[in-house]
Simulated scan of single mutants.
Amino acid sequence: MALEITPCVTDEEYDAWRRVRIAVVPYERTQSVAELREGDTPERLLVLAREDGVVVGHGMANRADSAASGSVIPRVLPEHRRRGVGTALLHRLVEHVETLGFPMLRAGADDEESLAFARRNGFEEVNREVEQTFRIDGPVEPTPRPDGIEVVTAQDRPGLWEAAYERFGLEALAGFAVDTPLDVTPESWVRSWLGDPMFLALHDGEVVGCAGLGLDPDQPARAENGLTAVRSDWRGRGLAVHLKLVTLAWAADHGITEVYTWTQDGNGPMRSLNTRLGYATTRVGIQLARPTRRG
């Protein structure tokens, strides 16, 4: 069979790309065609793999959130694996990252088959993430709001999230328990890190904490926790617990029965907080890296 790997251009191709992701990663939210379009940048490449015109896989290459790194994500539909499609996709994605000039490649795996494929291609484990899931079977009652705190949504206060990048966002991003510091641009902060809803804790008009949700139109009863963070001078006052419960209460009120979150294995405080609230560990994800030819 003739294998063809081409960039996504039309809405039909973007829709085919998302259908592959839904099939391979059914337990995570997949962006809509409109959201995929909004995320277009010169650095990002989305491709489809076809054999004799039939879509058999897809891929994405892009700037990674980790400093000086590009990410590569090849996926192949289960019935089309072990025929070289994943390897061909990986080579195409790596070529794109190398044209961007990044010295490191990043990838992820959360099953043994994907992990073995990554290792065969020179990737080594650098971080682990733990998925924790909260099942909602009734109303959720938030703890009392700490004194001096006002909680609003970013959607009700346009511009507040953008303005929080320097004072709040950079500190929150620096706190990730990862092997390489994150390097998130102001544009990516707005495009990729804003939940909907995103609850913001304000003190004297400044953002000192946040917690949000990523809703899933394909599975309306499920949602993903967005960034949950509290500025260092406000930690230890119950603000993170309050914000987390506010998001779960909102989810319960809107018919969501399952909320999941990914937390770095080394972020003990957040994992412990989730466990205390009733989240159960449901999956482990492995983050991998290898140098590019520039590395």
Rank of each mutant, 00 (worst) to 15 (best):
I5K: 07
T6H: 09
T10F: 10
E13G: 05
D15P: 06
A16Q: 15
A16G: 07
V20P: 11
R21T: 05
V24H: 04
V25G: 00
Y27S: 12
E28Q: 14
E28Y: 06
Q31T: 00
V33A: 02
A34G: 03
E35V: 04
E35P: 02
L36E: 13
L36G: 13
L36A: 00
R37H: 15
P42T: 04
L45T: 09
L46T: 10
V47G: 12
A49Y: 12
A49L: 11
R50T: 13
R50G: 04
D52M: 08
D52H: 09
G59C: 10
G59A: 12
G59T: 10
A61Q: 13
A61V: 07
N62Y: 08
R63I: 04
A64N: 15
S66Y: 14
A68D: 15
A68S: 13
S69R: 13
I73K: 05
E79R: 15
R82S: 12
V85H: 14
V85I: 13
T87Y: 02
T87N: 03
V97L: 08
E98Q: 13
L100G: 09
A107N: 14
D110C: 08
E112P: 04
S114W: 10
L115S: 02
A116N: 09
R119F: 01
R120Y: 00
R120L: 12
N121I: 00
V126S: 07
V130W: 04
Q132V: 06
R135M: 07
P139E: 08
E141R: 12
T143K: 07
P144F: 11
R145T: 15
P146R: 02
E150H: 09
Q155D: 14
R157N: 15
P158S: 02
E162W: 04
E162H: 11
E166P: 01
R167G: 13
F168L: 07
G169T: 04
E171K: 14
A172E: 11
A174H: 03
A177G: 00
A177M: 08
V178E: 14
V178Y: 03
D183Q: 13
P186W: 05
S188P: 01
V190F: 00
S192G: 11
S192M: 03
W193S: 01
W193H: 10
L194E: 14
G195N: 11
M198A: 03
M198F: 05
H203Y: 12
H203L: 03
E206Q: 15
P217M: 00
P217V: 00
Q219D: 15
A223R: 06
N225L: 15
G226K: 02
T228E: 02
V230F: 04
V230W: 01
R231E: 13
R237Q: 08
G238L: 10
L243D: 02
K244P: 03
K244I: 03
V246C: 08
V246N: 10
T247R: 13
L248R: 06
W250P: 03
W250G: 05
A251T: 15
A251H: 15
T257W: 01
E258P: 03
T261E: 06
W262G: 10
Q264I: 00
N267T: 07
R271H: 02
T282L: 03
I286K: 01
L288H: 06
R290E: 07
P291N: 08
P291K: 10
T292A: 06
R293T: 14
